[in-house]
Structure formats: C-alpha cells, structure tokens
C-alpha cells in the first residue's frame, strides 16, 4: 500500500473501505415495534420552564381568566349591594344573606 501523505490520497484510501448497502427493512420493523411498545415522554414537568413558549401562553391565559373573573365580579357587585344586607340583617342571618346572592331580593318579592 502506498503511503498517504496528502488529503486526496487519504480520501482515496478511506473510499476503498466501503460498507455494503444492505436491506434495513428488518431493522426498521424492530425500531417501529420498539416505538409502538414505548410511550413518548410528554412534557409533565413539576417546575415549568421559564423559557418555554407554551408555558408562557398558559400563564397569560390564566392571568386573562383571573382578570375577567375580577372584572366580572365587580360588574355584578352593584346588583348584590342594591339591596343592603343590613336591612334584613336585623331579623335574620346577615352572613348567610350576603353569602347567597339575590337572597335579599327574593325575600322582598316573597314578603
């Protein structure tokens, strides 16, 4: 064998060392079989990654829901305070009346 003292000759020597092309159908079947028998590793992390866009999206959605809930609560508040709970509290349970929205109005209608 000649001495390979440059890149091209080294490449030629390496080219001489071929691996035969083989049918990998059997290997592919084994690979697919293994995959079918194994569950994927889903993103079930205890600590959510700060830089994960999906995580930021979830936080943004939660924040929006919380704000909507807050505003919604405020919007409903005047309706529940329209009939002051203290008017009925003298003859009943103030805490329960204020806890159950609309209870005061029903009492007024019925009585």
């Amino acid at each position: 064998m000649t001495i390979h003292d440059d890149d091209n000759r080294l490449r030629a020597a390496l080219d001489a060392c071929k691996i035969q092309d083989r049918d990998n159908a059997g290997l592919l079947d084994a690979v697919l079989f293994n995959a079918a028998a194994t569950p994927q590793q889903r993103k079930t992390r205890l600590f959510l990654p700060v830089f994960d866009p999906a995580w930021r999206m979830q936080v943004a959605m939660l924040a929006c829901l919380a704000l909507l809930g807050y505003w919604g609560g405020n919007a409903l508040a005047p309706a529940t305070t329209a009939t002051p709970a203290t008017q009925i509290s003298s003859s009943g349970n103030t805490y329960m009346n204020t806890l159950i929205f609309g209870a005061n109005n029903w009492k007024e209608i019925i009585l």
């Binding site: 084994a30 690979v31 293994n34 995959a35 194994t38 569950p39 994927q40 590793q41």
Partner: peptide, 22 residues
C-alpha cells in the same frame, strides 16, 4: 461490526421517539 451497530440504532431510534415531544 454490524450487530452492535443495529443494537445501537435501535436504542438511538427509540430515544428519538421518546424524546420527540421535547
């Protein structure tokens, strides 16, 4: 050798499947 290569490929391909969502 071919045998070890096939074993390693099975491991590697399975890792790709398992880690794909990440």
């Amino acid at each position: 050798n071919r045998q070890d290569a096939e074993d390693v490929m099975q491991e590697a391909c399975l890792k790709i499947w398992v880690e794909a969502p990440r």
